[in-house]
Design a protein around this nucleic acid. Sequence first.
DNA 1: ACTCGTAATGCAAAAGATTCTCATCTCTCT
DNA 2: AGAGAGATGAGAATCTTTTGCATTACGAGT
Lengths: 140, 140
Amino acid sequence: MDNQEIRKAGLKVTLPRVKILELLEASVPRHVSAEDVYKMLLEKGEEIGLATVYRVLTQFETAGLVTRHNFEGGHAVFELDRGEHHDHIVCVLCGKVEEFMDATIEERQKEIAAEHGFEMEDHSLIIYGRCNNTSCPGRE
Amino acid sequence: MDNQEIRKAGLKVTLPRVKILELLEASVPRHVSAEDVYKMLLEKGEEIGLATVYRVLTQFETAGLVTRHNFEGGHAVFELDRGEHHDHIVCVLCGKVEEFMDATIEERQKEIAAEHGFEMEDHSLIIYGRCNNTSCPGRE
DNA sequence: ACTCGTAATGCAAAAGATTCTCATCTCTCT
DNA sequence: AGAGAGATGAGAATCTTTTGCATTACGAGT
């Protein structure tokens, strides 16, 4: 049950929080901005404020329920955290996001952090490229 | 000469551009925000507008003179591009930035992009961690 | 060096994203 | 059901970045 996740995070189980979590679970695409979440909920007839969406997403991030990414474009996107870490490939033409996970890279990162006297806490790897999707604009 | 770099980029050699480029060349730390550049120039007695700093940095980025990074914190930072690509380790406590470059990771990234049908254009790898600097706040 | 056309600048206003304030409302616990 | 802590919504505020426009500064040609 969703509610348990929220409760375990030390947060009250309120309607906005449940709705946002439900939406993230059902969300396609998986990477959405706060604005996206807000609009999607409004369209579903929910009554919610944008400030709440930001607050809740930040709380979820702190609680480890969602991950925040700073892709290009001046606004953050969030995705539900399903336990397994992964990195991203973003198409610079159509914005499509794919996920991947590579043990070799993960391992090297830890080593590199250690070599520099850092204790790795997190990392962000984003590959930008042009995808070969036929529906991708900017192709000819 | 600085001027040549600017001219080669197809831009007029104007005072603001020269000043910004000079500052980036002398800048410690190497990773500065537009606001940083603006304030540093003001402190040096230069007369410049913030809008110009943003415009020029964006032009320099397009021309390949500087690289823009979206670290955490809601604002972009820029660094002079010295030809050699590298990635970053950022201390989440004191904000210190170190650079590194790892051939193994670079290679894997290209392979991964290809595996997903992407033609890699660029990438951004940032490791977040806690550094062991004695002057780093948040240590005890 | 001088002039002119174009591109660049500075300022202020605008736009976009995110956070804050605060009065009101809603969980949770009893 | 009632009390208290915590959460919400609306709008104001803040911060970063972009844009419009009148003025100014390059630099190609003389």
